[in-house]
């Protein structure tokens, strides 16, 4: 086993599935990068290089560059999936999803239901989210809660290279439309990732550590922050359970409820806006189903209800961090 980055783990997952199943195709803006033009072929592999190398191995029939027209190429991916292909389409920043939202939430998400289960849509849309990249308001949002809201979509928020690979393979093999959220500041994070293909089932939370005093439920990049917070609190004798749901839809509510029932306290950490968020969703589920177990008020650690600021100083303050999580745990224990 070797250490691989989040970027390499996703690339390896796609490459292994393309080898296994010739119906798996890749397209998006600059996903090949240079294909068909003059100069270097396979120059980019997407704006941050995740699909680099696929053109060389699988050729221009299976790795396609698209025009800057999300409504067209996401629509094409939905149609291709409906015919039995397994496209992995890259929509560079989740912020741009608005221009092709109809294809996703009103078409892809509905096919299985409206055709009485006779149609499937094995589609993966890869997209980047998250602040901290100095990319300002229109390229930094954390929008997985919006997709979680729509029945018929599966929403994946991997927090580590190991999880990213297993969840990507699962997404490609899944028969429903999957929106795969990659945090853009995590691409160089590294850990041991097996060379073999493996899958991590959707809706199976990862209980990263078990404690007695509070449960921290965190998503995506926030899982690492939650671990730091739990490490810091451990030194003061406060032990925390850290739960990473891995997918927001389906959501492993059983594990979340069990952990809260054990600790009696809940802190939810979500990089998204606070209203109608994963933080508010998990809070409401716990309040409805584990109210009697709660020994203190639920705490949410989220971005403020405001766009991501352009100023680096403000952006650093904007994103939740370990200190804010530590403060929230203390608040629920108070």
């Amino acid at each position: 086993m070797a250490k691989k980055s989040y970027r390499e783990a996703i690339n390896e997952a796609i490459a292994q599935e393309m080898r296994r199943d010739e119906n798996v195709l890749v397209w998006g803006e600059d996903n090949a990068g240079g294909a068909g033009g003059e100069g270097e072929q396979d120059a980019w592999g997407g704006v941050l290089g995740v699909t680099k190398g696929l053109l060389g191995e699988f050729g221009p029939e299976r790795v396609l560059d698209t025009p800057i027209s999300e409504s067209a190429f996401i629509g094409a991916a939905v149609g291709a999936a409906a015919t039995g292909l397994r496209p992995v389409a890259e929509l560079m920043f989740a912020d741009f999803m608005g221009v092709c939202f109809d294809q996703i939430y009103n078409q892809a998400a509905k096919f299985r239901y409206m055709f009485g289960g006779k149609a499937v849509t094995p589609l993966v849309i890869r997209t980047m989210y998250g602040a901290g990249f100095r990319a300002a308001s229109q390229h930094s949002q954390t929008l997985y809660p919006m997709f979680t809201h729509i029945p018929g979509l599966k929403v994946i928020v991997p927090s580590s290279p190991y999880d990213a690979k297993g969840l990507m393979i699962q997404a490609i093999r899944d028969d429903d439309p999957c929106i795969f959220f990659e945090n853009k500041v995590m691409y160089d994070d590294e850990e041991e990732v097996p060379d073999d293909s493996y899958t991590i089932p959707f809706g199976e939370a990862n209980v990263i550590r078990e404690g007695e005093d509070a449960t921290i439920v965190a998503f995506g990049r926030m899982v690492g922050m939650a671990r730091q917070a739990a490490d810091a609190l451990e030194k003061e004798g406060i032990s925390c359970t850290v739960v990473d749901p891995r997918t927001t839809s389906p959501l492993d509510t059983d594990t979340i409820l069990e952990c809260v029932e054990d600790t009696g306290r809940l802190v939810v950490v979500d990089e998204g806006y606070p209203r109608c968020s994963m933080a508010s969703d998990v809070s409401s589920i716990v309040a409805q189903h584990a109210f009697k177990a709660l020994k203190g008020p639920i705490q949410m650690v989220t971005a403020p209800h405001a766009p991501v600021p352009f100023s680096p100083e403000l952006e650093d303050e904007y994103v939740p961090n370990a200190d804010k999580i530590v403060a929230a745990v203390r608040a629920t224990l108070a």
Binding site: Y162, G166, P194, D196, S197, Y198, T199, I200
Partner: peptide
């Protein structure tokens, strides 16, 4: 062990 058993 869990990781081992997830492998294809």
């Amino acid at each position: 062990v869990i990781k081992f058993k997830r492998i294809d």
